[in-house]
C-alpha cells in the first residue's frame, strides 16, 4: 500500500472515531455538540504532554479518553438543562475556550509554537510503510471496537432511552426518567471517544499546534454524519469515508482544472462540501445510509 494512501486511511479512521462520538451524541441522543474539536484537542494535548514526560502510550491514550470525558462532565452539568440551541452555543464556546487556553498557557502547551517531537505509535518500527500499516491496524482495531460498542449500545436498554430522549424528551420525563443524567453520560462517552481520536492524531502527526483544533474540524465531522445519515453507525463510517475521499481526492482536481490556485481550490472544496450539505438536507435528509440500516 502506498504511504500516501495509508496516511489518508489513518486520518479517515481518526475522523471516524470523531464521527462515532458525534453519532452517539447527536445521532442517537439529539445533543447538538458544536464543540467536538475541543475534546479532540484535550485528548491530543493530554496524551502528547504525558508521553513527553515518559509515560507509555498504553497509559497516555486511555488518559486522553479520561481527561476528555471528565472535561465533558461539568459542561454537561452546567448546560444540559439548556434548550438545544443554547447547548450548541455553549459547546462551541467551550471548544474555542480550549483553543485559547492552549494558545495562552505557554508553560504547559508551548502556546502557538505547539508541541513538537511527540512520540510516534510503534516507535520500534522504523518510519515507513510498515510503521504506517501498524498504526493503521491499531486505529482500525480501536475503531472496530468502538463500532461494536456503539452497536451494543443501540441494542441495549440504555440505547432505547437515549433514542427516546432524541425523539421526545418530555414524554420520557413523563415515564419517570431523568434525561439529564443520560445526556451527561452520552456527552462523556462521546467526548472520551474524541479524546482517543485526539491522542491518535497527536501520536500520528507528532507535532500539534492550536490551529489544528479550529471549529472547522467539528464541522467536518458534522458534514460526515449528515452525508452518511445521522443516527446510523454505518452512516458515520460511510459519511466520513466519502468526505475524506472527496477532501483528499479534490486536491488533484487542480491538475485538471486550469487557472485555479491552491488557496482557491481549498475554498472551492469547502464550498462544494457546503453545497452538498444543502442538497442532502433538502433531498435526502436521512443521509446515504438512511433507512436502509434501520433495525
Amino acid at each position: 500500500m502506498d504511504a500516501y494512501l495509508a496516511a489518508i486511511a489513518i486520518i479517515a479512521l481518526i475522523y471516524m472515531l470523531l464521527s462515532l462520538g458525534l453519532t452517539l451524541q447527536y445521532g442517537l441522543t439529539g445533543l447538538i455538540n458544536f464543540g467536538h474539536v475541543g475534546f479532540f484537542a484535550i485528548g491530543a494535548y493530554t496524551s502528547a504532554l504525558l508521553s513527553l514526560q515518559g509515560l507509555p502510550l498504553a497509559l497516555t491514550i486511555p488518559a486522553a479518553a479520561v481527561t476528555a470525558g471528565l472535561a465533558a462532565w461539568p459542561i454537561g452539568l452546567i448546560s444540559l438543562r439548556l434548550r438545544d440551541d443554547y447547548f450548541a452555543i455553549v459547546t462551541l464556546g467551550f471548544s474555542e475556550t480550549v483553543r485559547l487556553v492552549i494558545t495562552s498557557e505557554k508553560w504547559l502547551t508551548n502556546g502557538v509554537q505547539g508541541i513538537p517531537g511527540i512520540p510516534r505509535l510503534f516507535e520500534t518500527i522504523s518510519v515507513g510503510i510498515g510503521a504506517q500499516l501498524a498504526v493503521m491496524g491499531l486505529i482500525l482495531a480501536v475503531t472496530l471496537a468502538a463500532i461494536y460498542a456503539m452497536r451494543r449500545i443501540v441494542a441495549s436498554p440504555f440505547g432505547r432511552v437515549i433514542e427516546a430522549i432524541r425523539d421526545n424528551e418530555e414524554a420520557l420525563q413523563a415515564l419517570g426518567k431523568d434525561p439529564a443524567g443520560f445526556k451527561i453520560q452520552v456527552l462523556i462517552l462521546g467526548s472520551a471517544l474524541a479524546g482517543i481520536a485526539g491522542a491518535f492524531y497527536a501520536h500520528y502527526i507528532t507535532y500539534i499546534v492550536p490551529d489544528q483544533f479550529i471549529p472547522l474540524v467539528t464541522f467536518y465531522v458534522w458534514m460526515a454524519i449528515i452525508i452518511g445519515g445521522v443516527g446510523r453507525v454505518s452512516g458515520a463510517i460511510v459519511g466520513t469515508g466519502l468526505l475524506m475521499l472527496f477532501l483528499e481526492g479534490s486536491r488533484f482536481l487542480r491538475d485538471i482544472v486550469p487557472g485555479v490556485s491552491e488557496v482557491e481550490m481549498a475554498s472551492l472544496r469547502i464550498g462544494v462540501v457546503g453545497l452538498l450539505l444543502v442538497l442532502f438536507t433538502i433531498y435526502r435528509p436521512q443521509g446515504l445510509m438512511g433507512d436502509f440500516t434501520k433495525r
Partner: peptide, 26 residues
C-alpha cells in the same frame, strides 16, 4: 417528574407522545 411516576401517575402528553424512531415494542 421522574419521582412522581413511582407514585402511580401515568401521563399521556398532548400530541408528541410516542418515540417515533423506536418500534412499538421498544
Amino acid at each position: 417528574a421522574e419521582d412522581r411516576i413511582g407514585l402511580g401517575i401515568g401521563y399521556v402528553p398532548q400530541v408528541a407522545n410516542i418515540f417515533p424512531s423506536l418500534s412499538i415494542l421498544e
